[in-house]
Every structure is written in C-alpha cells, then in structure tokens.
Amino acid sequence: MALTRVFLVAGELSGDLLGAGLMRALRARHPDVEFRGIGGPRMQAEGMQSRFPLETLSVMGLVEVLKHLPELVGVRRTLYREALAWQPDVMIGIDAPDFNTGLELKLRRAGIKTVHYVSPSVWAWRQGRVKKIARAVDAMLTFLPFEADFYQRHRVPVTFVGHPLADEMPLATDRATARQALDLAPEGPLLAVLPGSRANEIRFMGATFLDAIETLCRRHPSLGVVIPAATASRQRELSTLLESYPALSERVTLIEGRAREAMVASDAVLLTSGTAALEAMLCHRAMLVAYKMAPATHWLAKRLVKTRWISLPNLIAQEALVQELIQEEATAEAIVDALDDLLADETARQALEMRFAQMHAALQRGASHRAALAVEAVAAGLALPGEGDA
C-alpha cells in the first residue's frame, strides 16, 4: 500500500527531530507522500505543512497547563476537524502523550489509523494510563525493549524500533582522541561530572558533587575532572559555585556543552539521572548516578513510581549495573566511596564498557526506518514488523 497522506503531531523540539527522521524514512519509500499536522523547523524542512507553531504544545507544569488549557483544547479540536476532512492514511502522535493520546482516541474512533511514537513513562507511574492508550492507538512504537515488554503484557500492539541516540552515536569510542579534542591531559585518570541540565539539579546536587570532587582530588593527586555544563546558564552557576573551592581551580576543567566528548574522554562518570545516563552508557563509560530532589517530590515519587531503578542503563538491563545513590543516600561521603571503588577497579570498568557496548549495539536498529515500516503496516492493516524485519 502506497502512503499518500500522513498526519503528524509533535509537541517539542525532540519530537521535531524524531518526526523529521521518520518523515525522511517514509518519503524514501513513498516519494509522493504529503505531511500535515504540527511540526517544528526540521519537520517543515522535510515538507510538513504545520498548522500551529511547535511551541503551542510545549507547556510544562500543572499551573502552566491549566493556564493554557482553553487554547490547547481549541488546538486539539481544530486538528481533529482538519484530520477528518483530509482523511490521512495514518495519524502519528510524537511524544506529548497528554495532548496526543486524546487526539488519537478521537481520530481512531472516527476510523483513522493511529500510531504513537515514543512511549510515555507509563511503565513507571500512572500505569492506569495504559487502558486509554490501548483504546487510542493501533500501535505504540518504543525506544527501549522493556517498554515493549510492558505493552505486550497489557495487550497493546507494539514495536520496539530501537533508540535514535544509539543510531546517532558510534559503536567505537576513542578516549585518547576525545581528550585531545578537549585539550585534556592525555594520561592519568579522568572523571567526567554532569550535575544536570536544570537549575534545580544544580541547586540540589552542585555543592554535593563539588564536595565529593574536592575529597577525591586530595585522595588521587593525578585525578583530572571535566565538567561539561549543559547550557551557558548552568556554566555560570557552576563557575560561581567553583569560586568556593579554590583547591579545584587547577584540577577542574569547566566547559559548555560537549558532554559526549567529555564522557568518552573519561574513565568514569558522575551524573544525575535522566538522558545523561543513557548517553554515558552509549559512550560505554562506567558511571555513578546520584540524585536528590525536593523532599515533598521524593515523598510523592516513592509512592507513585513503580520501578526498582531510576537510571536507564539499569532499566534496560533489568539489573543493577550502575550504582544509584538517591536522596538521603546521595551524600558527598557516599559518592566519594563509590567513585573510589570505581576508579580503583580497572577490570570492573572494562567489563562495564564491554557490557554497555553490547547494549548499545542492541539499541542501534535504525529507529526511523523501523518506525516507518511499522507505520506502513498500521496503514495497510497488516501485522506489525517483528524482530527480524528490516
């Protein structure tokens, strides 16, 4: 079946990147396909006729969502009407689950096939959402294998397509070249420290990380430290914090961005959780995850979150490959002890690097191409592609 019309709705810049890759993969197989919906500059460059600006759906936080709720309801109503009038072969919601699931549900009830690309963290919290997802989509496309297992258990049609980051990052890493590129010492142990991309993460973990680094540098005279700040704002905040640690002035290299190079250059990584842990795994580097949040948030998370681990490497492996120090456990002393062990045990680090390389290869599947195959199958009313299909 040739695809002629595809309706896509992306909700933020990461979705715009995913959508553009999927659109390229679909057009390679269906040169005459048209795209409408909501997309950002990358999707528009691939031929998307975007009905609203991408930022329309990029609303974070309960208060902000409530404030914009009438506008969001109006946008969803307009998209529903326009999709019905256009009659696409398939509608694809990219992330933005709270917005897209409602739209997918209405369109599917009206007879339009629907696909959701990027699973929400329904496996971790608010698991009851899977019932609505089951009614809303003809297929869920997941980045990670344990997500697909969750949907299979709940009888939701699903395809594990692999992770675009795994496709993007090379399977071979070169520590020496990365150190040279960052103008770091070619020899000696190096610790990469990623204290988070949000101001709150710097507020909760910044001083704790620097306290730990100060102790580690006293214990390991040859240890170098590189801190890639996520943004210019985070770099200013970290630079201000470092002023209180004069002993670190010759030991710490603070840079803006280039986190992947810093991790590849390192022997071990200290980080808060999130995508950084996945990136460290894809850089094949041993790591320690340490994370603190507001006490009330932690109290609520303990009651709502249903997973044994918070870091993606552990969730993917379904075992504790990476040590996690959470909340009260995330002290400078505990971080120092854990990193002491990690830096001292080269054999353990090398074993982790090999395991992470294997996990990387398992996720490197050509996500955009596999997503396109699944979209074709849904539009044609066929079975979703299996593990061996390419």
Rank of each mutant, 00 (worst) to 15 (best):
S233C: 05
R234A: 14
Q235P: 07
Q235G: 10
Q235N: 11
R236E: 08
E237S: 14
E237R: 11
L238N: 04
S239P: 03
T240M: 12
T240D: 14
L241S: 07
L242V: 13
S244Q: 15
Y245G: 02
Y245H: 10
P246Q: 09
P246L: 08
A247F: 06
A247R: 15
L248V: 06
E250S: 12
R251F: 05
L254N: 09
I255Q: 01
E256S: 07
R258S: 05
R260S: 08
E261K: 12
E261L: 14
A262W: 09
V264D: 02
V264F: 02
V264N: 03
A265S: 12
A268C: 08
V269I: 09
V269F: 01
V269S: 00
T272D: 05
T272H: 06
T272G: 05
G274F: 05
T275P: 13
T275L: 13
A276Q: 00
A277L: 01
E279T: 09
A280N: 00
L282N: 00
C283H: 03
C283E: 09
H284A: 14
L288N: 00
Y291K: 08
K292G: 02
K292H: 11
K292D: 02
M293Q: 11
A294E: 13
T297C: 04
H298N: 10
L300A: 15
L300M: 15
L300G: 13
K302V: 12
R303I: 12
L304I: 15
V305T: 14
K306F: 06
R308W: 11
R308I: 11
W309T: 06
W309L: 09
I310K: 11
I310Q: 11
L312D: 07
L312K: 08
P313K: 03
A317D: 00
Q318F: 05
E319S: 06
E319D: 09
L321G: 00
L321H: 01
V322Y: 03
Q323I: 09
Q323E: 15
L325T: 13
L325H: 12
Q327L: 11
A330I: 04
A330S: 04
T331E: 02
T331L: 02
A334K: 06
D337V: 11
D341I: 07
L342F: 03
A344L: 11
A344K: 12
T347F: 03
A348T: 07
R349F: 04
R349T: 02
Q350Y: 03
Q350S: 07
A351T: 09
L352C: 08
E353S: 08
E353Y: 00
Q358H: 14
H360C: 07
A361D: 15
A362T: 12
L363K: 02
L363E: 01
Q364M: 14
R365K: 15
G366N: 06
G366E: 05
G366F: 03
G366H: 05
A367C: 05
S368M: 08
S368Y: 08
R370Q: 13
R370V: 10
A372H: 08
A372R: 04
A372E: 06
L373C: 14
